[in-house]
Design a protein around this nucleic acid. Structure first.
Lengths: 124, 124
DNA sequence: CTTTCATATGATTATTTGTTCATATGTTAT
DNA sequence: ATAACATATGAACAAATAATCATATGAAAG
């Protein structure tokens, strides 16, 4: 049916043995795939996405972000910590106030492609 | 200190009032930001990332993916359902076997930019 | 039609994760 | 030093989610 190389049954291993072998040799390192997932996990929360978009316009302090998004200062601070740890935003202190801004060109790119995907998906 | 427009205190609202107003007018729709987060959430799991990378090479059936990644058939099937619901993979049935393949150019783009970010981050 | 095999689905469970509350740190002004 | 304010941090709680187990569906072969 398919055509060439079915081998044994699926007893959890190898329906198409050479396909499996080929893919196995070309898979990236586990560490990298794990880190990649961790990075996207950061984008996978609407609060963080909204913070990033707010920072698209200009740098903002924690309190302003909280005001814009209708969140508590604490919640924003926690999420900014995550974003900062992943080098997506950077902080600048001016007296008592800490200003946050985007710290990565990739933020734009990633969000942009995500939007493209969404818009095309709805058009199908 | 800062320079122009501090207004009142942060009582949860508006340290820099015009900054807040400006950003508020330019924020995208809530729905879109939510959908965007949902999309990235799909990429935010190492199992799904690994499945996507396996499919980079060629289409694969559920059992092969399970074999390649050392997962149960059930776990893979559940994740494929998520990926399919988000139009990142598509399915093709051939008899008893269902072959999955990537269903979006954006998958390449998004993962590519993610990798760029990671590699630059470690070089800092 | 019954069996076999590949895949899918539902329920349960364990873990992760975002928010809240309370409190701590750090900076400026009095 | 003390007070006031912006921000950060830790613990506790609630919600989301990925894996597992049991079972169901769907297709081909006998």
């Amino acid at each position: 049916m398919t055509d060439d190389n079915e081998i044994e049954k699926c007893e959890f291993l190898y329906v198409h043995e050479d396909a499996v072998r080929e893919v196995l040799t070309k898979m990236p390192k586990e560490d990298m795939l794990y880190d990649l997932a961790e990075l996207f996990k950061v984008f996978g929360d609407s609060t963080r996405i909204r913070i990033l978009y707010a920072l698209f316009e200009r740098e903002l302090c924690v309190c302003d972000i909280a005001g814009i998004l209708g969140l508590t200062q604490t919640a924003v601070s926690h999420q900014l910590r995550v974003l900062k740890a992943n080098k997506l935003v950077k902080a600048r202190r001016d007296g008592k106030v800490v200003f946050y801004s985007l710290d990565d060109d990739h933020v734009h790119s990633i969000l942009g492609i995500g939007i493209q995907h969404l818009s095309e998906g709805s058009g199908k």
